[in-house]
Amino acid sequence: MKMSKVLEVKGLTTQFESKNGPLTVVDQVDFIVEKGEVLGIVGESGCGKSVTSLSILQLLDKHGTISSGEVFYQNINLVEKNEKEMKKIRGKEISMIFQDPMTSLNPVLTIGKQIGEVIEQHEKLKGQEVKQKVVKLLQLVGIPRADEIYHEYPHRLSGGMKQRVMIAIAIACNPTLLIADEPTTALDVTIQAQILDLLRSLKDEMDMSMLLITHDLGVVAEMCDRVVVMYAGQVVETTDTRTLLRHPKHPYTIGLIQSTPHQSKGEKRLKSILGQVPTPDQFSHGCRFVERCPKAMEICQSTAPPLYDVDSHTSCRCWLYENKGDVI
């Protein structure tokens, strides 16, 4: 099977205004989403993963701007599109699910209305046809008694059900790419697994690609084919999921995996990464992880490392890998 790129992000840099000048929240981010794959972006809060996804769809608020870089969706550069052109792409070509289903639904409209609206905006369907499609969608996302739920208001549904509705809205127009921003974080553990299952089966069924943004390595292990690890606005490691979990390369990734309680079973103390995640105004000139890194060297203090290719499918932003591959 020949892979083709659905989304290619090149050198994406997003800045936010602040009192002390612009802050670079996303810095030179590159990644590719291949057709049919699930790419994960992992990182802790403030690493820029959500801003990256909002930048792709140009959903940044008034303080944020894309200052450089390109986002190619099937050879169209989205960065150059204006708001009107983006509206046609959002929902239809690329759609998004957010973390909090409670606030993303309009409390005064019925479920059926809200899903129907999206369909009417993008497709030329009328009245009864729309309703049929909505009910079919509700069934597709595993909502029982879809006919009744059609007439219900959001507050009557549980969190998991609401997230299913959000997914129904997102897939209503058969998008090519689905961006899921922490889709399960606000949900209970048992519901999380169900929603992940649903997303996986929908992806296959509807032939979508997926960009999954999460802080949870457990979700990554369940869902993703390849992973981009972000730290302090930069990509620090890109690799396939198996390699990431078994042989992480970047000291940050190593620390992250070791500090989850499941990994250090039997040990009295957890391994942990010292210190705190830096905020954009505290980024050092050298490597941004240097203050917390157990393997920091002299060069790390002064010069920022480039992204090295460790092997054909792994790259890592760390001086430790300087001699193991070529700079890309």
Partner: peptide
């Protein structure tokens, strides 16, 4: 809390 900070806090509690 962030994942990398969670383990610090758990250690502290112990």
């Amino acid at each position: 809390l962030d994942v990398s900070v969670q383990s610090q806090i758990l250690n502290l509690l112990q």
